[in-house]
């Protein structure tokens, strides 16, 4: 592998490693999302600096020009990261949905309570059953 390509690859990978670590240090990136990035950066630094290792890897996957193997592996990581983010986004949007629903339910509960001010026990009873998930009006329907 040409020395210049190797140098560029090493510098790039080290910068990536440094940036990720720095972002974690400044709490801009949560550890759980940084792990995959760190793994990616470490593998790239390792393969970029360890010549015979990269040569071996490229021979195993059948790539003639070793730097291409580096790109290939980096691309694999990019795909993995994107998939990781897609799952994270799916989870977040699901959680946001639940939060929005809870917020709306609570708001309605509060405004309903405000509209009918303190009626002693009766009012209390109305608002108690929620935690259990079964209202007091439950009648077996099966």
């Amino acid at each position: 592998m040409a020395a210049r390509v190797q140098l560029v690859a090493i510098i790039g990978a080290v910068i990536l490693l440094f940036v990720v670590l720095e972002m974690v240090r400044r709490r801009r990136l949560m550890e759980r999302y940084a792990l995959l990035w760190l793994l990616c950066a470490l593998v790239l630094v390792g393969l970029a600096s360890w010549r015979s290792g990269l040569l071996h890897v490229s021979r195993v996957i059948g790539i003639i020009y070793p730097p291409n193997a580096l790109f290939f592996i980096a691309f694999g990581f990019v795909l993995l990261l994107l998939l990781h983010f897609s799952t994270a986004v799916s989870r977040l949007s699901d959680q946001t949905k639940v939060l929005a629903q809870r917020l709306a339910l609570l708001e309605e509960r509060v405004s309903h309570a405000e509209r009918r001010p303190a009626m002693g026990e009766e009012a209390d009873e109305e608002f108690e059953p929620v935690a259990s998930g079964h209202g007091r009006r439950f009648v077996s329907s099966d």
Binding site: L105, G133, G135
Partner: peptide, 8 residues
């Protein structure tokens, strides 16, 4: 809402 308020 229906579940929490015990609607049948």
């Amino acid at each position: 809402f229906a579940r929490d308020h015990g609607y049948d």
